[in-house]
Amino acid sequence: MGKAVRGTFICAMFCLLPQLFPVVFAAADPILVVANPSLKTQLNKEDLKEIFLGNKTMVDSRRVIPVDQARTSKLRKEFYQFLVGKSPVEMNVYWAEQIFSGKARIPSVVPDDQAVIQYVSSNSDAIGYVSRSADTKNVTVLMLLQ
């Protein structure tokens, strides 16, 4: 009886783990980091993180403008969780502090992949992120986050 209870408990914990630690267990799809074709540069994850946190505004002596997806977007949640390790609520607090302390301006927000591609292809300094299924023929893929 004791073993059965323990077995049930262990099974229940295994079932609960993905709920408790969703990030670790999430089967995240790859995310493409895209830029305007005129922005020919090599970025690493640290550079990308600083750009999307508003700390880095220049790459190779050239200005970069990050563009975000909608606040409710699943991709945005996965992007920041992967890149910065912060949840949407934590990112909201982070940006509030940046804005109200005058340190940085929040990135422009567009609704979806298609809008990111359109924004990036028409703005020479823009850099954004889209899902793998997005049509990227008018932009340059700088990095694959996986």
Partner: peptide, 18 residues
């Protein structure tokens, strides 16, 4: 005219949310 950066919270001193 700018914030006097005296404290940790000076820059957001009126933003209680933070």
């Amino acid at each position: 005219r700018q914030i006097f950066p005296n404290w940790l919270v000076s820059e957001v001193i009126d933003v209680g949310f933070l």
